[in-house]
Every structure is written in C-alpha cells, then in structure tokens.
Simulated assay, not measured.
Amino acid sequence: MWKWLFLGFLLHVSWANADDKLSIYVWSNSMPASTIKAFEARCQCRVEQSYYGDNEELLAKLAAGAKGYDLVFPSTFVLPALIGPNKLLALDKNKLPHSKDILPAFLRVPYDSNNAYHQPFMIGVTLLGYNAEKLKAAGVDPSSWAAIFDPEQLKKIKNKVTVLDSSRELFAAALMYLGKDPNSGKQEDLAAASDVIRKAKPYWAAFNNDSYSRQLANGNIWLAMGNSSDLFQARREVKETKRKFNLEFTAQKEGNEWWMDTVTIMKDAPRPDLAHQFIDFLLEGKTAAAQSKASGGISPVSTAVPFLDPELSQHPVLNPKPQDFAKWTLLRAYDAKERRLLSRYWTGIKVR
C-alpha cells in the first residue's frame, strides 16, 4: 500500500511540476542562458523560449492567433498595437518591488506613460557595425548612413553589406540619411526613402536580422546595419577568437534610432504569477547587470551600474554622453494609414 501511495505522490509532483512552466516569446540572442538558469533555480520552474527577429514578426504571430505565451518583449513603438486590442494584462505593481530602481529617463515613454502594461527590459541603438580594416582599405566611412545608401560608396563593397529586414527601422535610417524626420509618415517622405532603398538594394548581400553579427564576426560581410547589443557580442567574439581584423560599431552623424525593448504580460497568460516574478527578477541590479554584460544592451536599472564592466560603461555608444543621446530618436507608433503605406512601399522593395 505504501508503495502505491508513494508512486501516487510522485505522479502528483510530476503533474504539478509540469504546470510550473513560464513561456516567453523573446528577441533572438537577447536572453542569456545564465539568466534563464538562475530564474529556473529560484522559482523551481521551467522557462520555455520562442524567438522572433523583429517587431513585425511578433505582431504577425500574435495576430494569427498564437496562444500560450506568458511574456512578450515588444519595442516601445509597438505597445499601442498590443494595448489597443486589449492583448496585454495590466501589471500588478505590488508584485514588482524592484521597479522603483528604473532610471527616470526610461519611464517617460509616450505609449504607456504610467507603465501600466510594460516595464523596460533593454535599451540599445540601431547603427552600423564594420570590419575596420576592410572599410579603411575601401575608403568607406561608417560614421555616415551613406555607407549603406550611397551607390558610389556601395560600389566599393558590393555584396559585403547587410541591412536589417525591418521596414520601420530601414526606412527610419533612410529618412535620417536624407535629412528628414525618421518618424515621418508622410507619403512624400516615405516615397523618397523607398527610392533611396531601391537604388541601394542591388549592392547589398541580404536583408538579415538573425545572422548578420555572426557573418560580420566570420569576415563574410564587412558592413552591417544592426543593433548595438548584437554588434557588441560580435565584437567580443572577434576578440576572443583572435581574428585577424577588428570589428567595431559606431553611431552615424545624421542621427540614429534608440530603442527600448519592454517586457509585457499577455492578457491570456497561463501563468501571470510566474510572469510577474520573472519581470521583477529582471529588474534586480545584479540580474540587470548580468543581462547587459551578456548582451551588450544598456540597462534601464540604476542598481545595475556598480556591477557593470568598463567595456560597457566606457563605450561611447553603450554609455552615451547627453549631447550624443540628444541626436538619437525613439521611434513613434505609426497609425493604421501610415502602416499600410509603409507596407505597400516595403512590398514593392522586397519583390523587385
């Protein structure tokens, strides 16, 4: 009898543990294994990850009816597309005691100004990463967006360039190159940006969100539009593997997009309790610093600063001066008309 009672107890425990699963839908390469393992050890649960490469992919998956996610990590300008249709759960601030440590600059987000539905996760910059020796030999200056848009520059490095497969970010960069507002949704501005992109496209090797940093680190490409955290990791890999070139990344003189990825709980989250625990865990100083060390992102948490390496704290992009930060733009959310217009131009670019 005791044998069967014991077996029943084990079966009950296995069923209970099977339910202790947190499901997150997160950016590729953004969540270090050490963070996941540390949380799993603390909560005695399992974290299941699925990945996406850009915000459009996230929105498309959710619009198609994807279910079962507890947490998603949208960029700020995507928040209205999730808050409006009531897809997100209002956060219980009583369960997020470490939210008090978020730096004020990252709380003034226009799309959810009271942080009712989101908490900051990681901050970064969209810019250019490059093989320093190859670009110097070619005479291409990576401190300008001309490096990826000017055909005269691109002729020197044809098929050695990749750009992000993200309509919003690529159009924003093209608008900055043209001296226009990267948040413009005017038809004439988007048409001008589309023209710039179409003329540059024949010189690019690919639109690439997922492997550009690896291709850059391997020396297969020489110039990549990407985000600062991916390029930081690629630069670290080049140093650690003692490659015979230097990988660098820099901001552009015309301006850059700074972005903030957030963490949000889905309205139909199976485990909102574990989701709140994970968010608060991410906001702890040591966790946030470890996240930055692993990913190269800028931490939104003040208590992370004492734990940051000089590699992060002394980099001009990863720890920007106020006058440099002032040149960067946080992308706003396009309205439905602007999104349709952008989609039409984007489709025209991709099919040609």
Rank of each mutant, 00 (worst) to 15 (best):
I298F: 01
F106M: 01
L308F: 10
F39Y: 14
N256M: 04
V78H: 05
V317W: 00
L282P: 04
L308S: 07
H315L: 06
T35S: 14
K100P: 01
K253L: 03
T126S: 11
M122W: 07
L89T: 03
Q233I: 09
A137G: 02
G65E: 04
E133Q: 15
D261E: 09
R236Q: 14
S228C: 07
D54E: 05
F249I: 08
R271S: 09
R168W: 00
D165N: 15
A224G: 06
L22H: 08
A138D: 02
P97C: 09
P85L: 01
E248W: 03
L283R: 09
G53A: 13
K199E: 08
K327A: 05
A90T: 12
A205E: 12
P316K: 11
R271A: 02
F281S: 02
L107R: 14
D273F: 02
L190Y: 10
V47K: 07
A191E: 14
M1T: 09
V301T: 11
W259A: 01
S211G: 02
N220H: 14
E237R: 15
S194E: 09
W258V: 00
V72N: 00
E152D: 15
G139K: 05
W346D: 12
P142F: 07
S166I: 11
L283Q: 11
I157H: 12
K350M: 08
R344S: 12
S75V: 01
E248T: 10
